[in-house]
Design a protein around this nucleic acid. Structure first.
Length: 276
DNA sequence: TTCCAGGGATATA
DNA sequence: TATATCCATGGA
């Protein structure tokens, strides 16, 4: 990745592997907003501002180190895309979403956010999360931090219903309690299967939500989250039809291996954006 | 009015 | 282990 740090800002000098809208609109992140020709983004208790300038992307932040890691800037996406293009039916998706990067997000934020995402749509997910942050997160001046586990544990079912979480309100209360006895940072060192089993033990976390958490918080890429779109994609790729998500996921991981998580993001973004 | 959204929990056999 | 049903909410 070609980037430099000047005047305390991160400057991306190669936009082919970094496209703000590709990154933000591919379904991995919920706390961002477009303001004119700029984008503001919150993660945990940090924030930044993204902006296209000439042929560069400028990332303004007071925590450069956090966002160099967050945006996965030391990972070579040109190489990943080259490898994935060797597969059939993949080149169009990669060319379309060429600037996608897999973000390294906060585990607690991903666990809570993707429990909310279940059987829900993205605009509504964003609204629920934002209302939760406004009520439970620390006021950082320009934005509200994502709530700490302590803050989440202080909220009840009535609160989560009041922000629109619906039937997931009870999951959020239960999972906040469960997390007090789970070393969710320790999941990072587990193999994918063990990590998935651990997460599925949480209330409101099934295989799909677990895979999203593993991919977006822990960079486990030997998985392929199966949602309603992935199931359509599975058929569109010409795979043998089945209605079993586990079978579909396993077959796809057998094809793409450690690149499965990346493949899923390019395919998800491409099919979702072009089928409207 | 019905369908759908980055699904999962629960009951049942 | 596999299948059926239920679940809040809001936009299309």
């Amino acid at each position: 990745m070609n980037y430099e740090v000047t005047d305390g800002n991160i400057v991306i000098t190669d936009r082919d592997d970094f496209n703000i809208e590709h990154i933000l609109d591919c379904g991995q992140v919920f706390r961002y907003r477009k303001e004119g020709d700029e984008f503001t983004l919150c993660s945990k208790n940090e924030n930044c501002l993204l902006k296209n300038e000439n042929d560069c992307v400028i990332i303004k932040t007071n925590n450069v180190g956090y966002f160099v890691d967050y945006f996965d800037l030391d990972n070579d996406y040109s190489k990943i895309k080259r490898q994935l293009k060797e597969y059939p039916n993949m080149a169009d998706a990669i060319n379309y979403g060429h600037g996608i990067r897999l973000l390294n997000q906060d585990p607690l934020e991903m666990i809570i956010s993707f429990i909310i995402s279940a059987n829900n749509n993205i605009p509504r997910i964003k609204g629920i999360i934002e209302r939760m942050c406004t009520s439970l997160g620390e006021n950082m001046g320009d934005y509200y931090a994502f709530p700490t586990l302590d803050a989440l544990q202080g909220a009840d079912v009535t609160f989560f219903k009041s922000i629109g979480a619906g039937y997931r309100a009870e999951y959020l209360v239960k999972v906040s309690k469960q997390l007090s006895t789970l070393d969710y940072e320790g999941i990072r060192s587990m193999d994918t299967a063990t990590a998935r089993r651990t997460l599925v033990g949480l209330m409101g976390v099934g295989n799909k939500v677990a895979d999203c958490i593993l991919l977006f918080a822990y960079k486990k890429t030997d998985l392929f989250p199966m949602d309603t779109w992935s199931k359509k994609i599975y058929a569109a790729l010409g795979n043998e039809p089945t209605d079993n998500s586990t079978v579909m996921s396993k077959n796809l991981v057998a094809q793409y291996g450690e690149l499965s998580g990346y493949a899923q993001q390019y395919l998800y973004y491409y099919y979702r954006q072009t089928s409207n």
